[in-house]
């Protein structure tokens, strides 16, 4: 038998390069900016635009792990409750005399534990879907937040804590810098490491992944734990921006976060999508909200727009447009 030569170099193809989901996002992004500019002369002011990012980036930290979770083909709707619980625990422990630095560590710890519990439950009870597990823990985590703080607010944080949500480093909002750093970390983790490759494999075919020696349970637990940790990071920034916290904070965040990831081209059936798309759609939805705010359009309209965007983002590629075919991970 004659051995044939198999090419190991990827050919560059202009057509498939431009048929990527991300270009569609870029087009929508530009469109939103054009509309916003024509609606409000103040919109394009660089200083204001930079400040605008501070208003929507808090929840964006959860988008990164949510991308991983969706790539696994799972979903986590308990993240908003994790935000609330970790914020409440932080505020309460600070107000009972714990130094702020330690309280912040406690916040991260609480979030991580919440995520770990989700992950362990999902792995140990495979009969239960991630939907039902995170649905129950969503009620429980927020329930615990209510037990701790009842209907009170807790705040009076030290002045320096405000820096997280309101501070600047060299004229750039600190939260934007933090977002960029996490974006780089999670982007590299997803696309350039064995961890990311294994996550993609699991999302595409979990059985084949198991037979290939991937420790699927371990990876799943790590990813759900990361979601908890990043929810706590969101809690840190959100509480800093608001100055105090309540048990009902961040409700509905899970929807925003899932919408951002799905709009970014992450398939809900697992295995497909890239971090870049999710990052673009964070800004796309954020700036849309900001622009509508400038024109005093009520927040309810935004609710409706995000809801519709979420459905269309899933529907359009499924309608078998050409563009859908390029939504594969490389």
């Amino acid at each position: 038998m004659n051995a044939r030569n198999i090419v190991a170099k990827k050919e560059f193809n202009w057509k498939s390069f431009f048929l990527q989901w991300e270009w569609l996002l870029v087009c929508i992004f530009i469109l939103i900016n054009v509309i916003n500019t024509s609606l409000s002369p103040y919109y394009l002011d660089p200083k204001r635009l930079l400040d605008a990012t501070m208003t929507f980036l808090d929840k964006a930290f959860i988008v990164f792990p949510m991308v991983f979770i969706l790539i696994l083909g799972d979903i986590d709707i308990s993240v908003s409750s994790t935000v609330a619980l970790s914020a409440v625990v932080m505020a309460v422990s600070y107000n009972s005399g714990v130094p702020m630095e330690i309280a912040m560590v406690i916040c991260l710890l609480v979030g991580t534990i919440c995520g770990l519990i989700n992950g362990l439950l999902i792995v140990k009870f495979k009969e239960l879907s991630a939907v039902i597990v995170t649905l129950s823990t969503m009620i429980i985590y927020r329930g615990i937040a209510y037990i701790i703080l009842e209907d009170q607010a807790s705040g009076k944080f030290p002045a320096w804590y405000k820096f997280l949500g309101w501070g600047y480093v060299g004229g750039v909002p600190f939260i934007l810098i933090a977002f960029a750093i996490f974006a780089a970390i999670f982007g590299l983790l997803l696309h350039k490491t064995t961890f990311g490759r294994r996550a993609y494999a699991m999302g595409n075919n979990i059985t084949a992944s198991r037979f290939s020696g991937i420790q699927v349970d371990k990876i799943k637990v790590i990813i759900f734990t990361l979601a908890g940790t990043m929810s706590a990071v969101t809690a840190l920034f959100l509480t800093s921006r608001m100055g105090s916290t309540r048990p009902n904070v961040a409700s509905g965040y899970e929807l925003d976060v899932i919408a951002m990831a799905v709009l970014g081209g992450i398939s809900t059936s697992g295995g497909k999508g890239r971090m870049l798309g999710a990052i673009i759609s964070v800004f796309l939805i954020g700036l849309l909200r900001y622009g509508l705010g400038l024109k005093n359009i009520p927040a309810q309209v935004l609710l409706i727009i995000i809801g519709l965007l979420l459905i269309f983002a899933v529907m359009i590629p499924n309608l078998k447009f050409n563009i859908g075919k390029t939504r594969k991970a490389q």
């Binding site: 809900t268 309209v301 935004l302 609710l303 809801g307 519709l308």
Partner: peptide, 16 residues
């Protein structure tokens, strides 16, 4: 569109 996404989206729309 899977049910969880469709109803999550319409949840927002109807609430709005």
């Amino acid at each position: 569109v899977p049910p969880i996404i469709a109803t999550l989206g319409m949840m927002n729309v109807f609430r709005g």
